[in-house]
């Protein structure tokens, strides 16, 4: 067990890594949260800094809600509430 932390700069190998904490879907946990494409800002936690959609394995969303997020982000992009690409600069100040 001690071996894992011996070399601090080294990442533990896949075998030695602790099991990842199970993430829960925040929309299932709190039914009051809604997803709306009109609120580009509310969708930002599900985007990277470059404006890409974060996969559900990282965001922890369930299949259903990730799908809703996915559709909403794409609708928000059409309405210029969110950028399509990172070269469309200055979007963080937008929403």
């Amino acid at each position: 067990m001690m071996k894992r932390f011996k070399d601090k700069d080294k990442k533990p190998s896949k075998k030695n890594r602790l099991p990842a904490k199970k993430k829960t879907c925040r929309f299932c946990a709190d039914k009051k949260l809604t997803i709306d494409f009109k609120e580009g800002r509310l969708l930002q936690p599900f985007l990277t800094e470059r404006g890409r959609i974060i996969p559900r394995r990282i965001s922890g969303n369930c299949a259903y809600h990730q799908h809703v997020i996915n559709v909403s982000v794409k609708q928000a992009r059409i309405l210029a509430l969110l950028p399509f690409t990172a070269t469309q600069a200055g979007w963080l100040s937008v929403a």
Partner: peptide, 8 residues
């Protein structure tokens, strides 16, 4: 409108 969802 402020974000309801906190950034993890």
């Amino acid at each position: 409108v402020e974000p309801v969802v906190a950034v993890s």
